[in-house]
Amino acid sequence: MKTPALYIAEELMPFLRAKLAEFLYSGGMTQAEIGEYLGLTQAMVSKYLAGKYRSPPGPVAERLIAIAEEGARFILYGGSKEDAIVLISRRLVELLQSGFLCKYYAEYAGISEEACRSIYSVQRHRGEVLEELALALRRLLEIGGFGKLIPEVRSNFAYALNTPSSNGDVAAVPGRITVVKGKPFALPPEFGVSNFTAGLLVEIGKIRPEVRSVLNIRAGGDVEAALKRAGMKAVRVKTGGLPEEEAIRRIAEVFRDAPHDAVVDEGGHGVEPMVYLFGEGPFDVVDKLRKLVEALENEKAE
């Protein structure tokens, strides 16, 4: 009997461990440290770094690489082994919950896709979303230079449940992120405390369900140039003068043709120009913000 747990262990984990090893090694960890963290022998780490592993189908490999990159960032940021295991396990379960892996698991196990979907029909628990967003928020507030990117209307950082149906399915920062005594400050995330950013994730989720997190920052020529230097895909829209619901739909529609890292809203009369950074999860968004800050600082240094 080939259960989902066996599928993950046999078909996904060897490739995922290999990619984790690659990202951690490029991030400065030694083979011995990687082996201790991942529970592998140094010989196995060396084998993985030499590219000696079997790859899953292309679409699956892409998702696993994204999970490995997020997990490696978390580890390199100082996350504990226990929390790293929880984070990566959740990401793997999400791939089954969303139905993405059901095609591949069904072929492996010899069952129907419908049977797979029935196993993982329960949405991720709200407490887990709050926990992950809170941790990512702490990382965000520690980034030097973030405070200078907070707009006049202040920033918000949001993270949605899988397939959110309303703003109540989106966690965000109550009162938004502001600057206190020269430093960014935020209250712990809660559900149902955001309208616009939550509405964006609900609407975009209908088009790109993998996009579940967003952070808004100030706009400006320097920010747009930095986005380009950082290699991020950005698209421009204009919502000035539109009702809130229509503005949300206008931004969400740009995801119909292709995914984007950022959307630059030109604003308009009474509407502050804004940049929205999007990602599959909050750590993905934090990483993009970090790259943006680095690009801005490098430009000043030149």
Rank of each mutant, 00 (worst) to 15 (best):
R17F: 13
L20D: 07
S26C: 00
A32Y: 13
E33A: 14
Y37N: 01
G39M: 09
V45I: 14
S46F: 00
L49K: 09
Y53V: 05
S55E: 15
G58K: 13
I65E: 14
E70H: 06
G71T: 06
A72T: 05
R73P: 01
F74C: 05
Y77T: 04
S80Y: 01
I85W: 01
V86D: 08
S89Q: 11
V93H: 05
L96I: 02
F100H: 12
L101A: 10
C102L: 07
Y105S: 03
Y108P: 02
A109Y: 08
I111W: 03
S121E: 06
V129H: 03
L130G: 06
E131Y: 11
E132K: 07
L135F: 07
L141F: 08
F146T: 05
R154C: 06
R154D: 04
Y159D: 04
L161V: 14
G182V: 11
P188E: 15
E190V: 06
F196R: 12
A198Y: 09
L200G: 00
L201C: 06
N216W: 02
N216S: 05
R218S: 14
R218L: 09
G221E: 14
G221N: 12
V223G: 01
A226F: 04
L227Y: 04
P243W: 08
V264P: 08
G270M: 12
V271D: 11
P273H: 14
L277P: 10
G281D: 15
V286S: 11
D287C: 07
K291M: 08
L292R: 00
V293N: 01
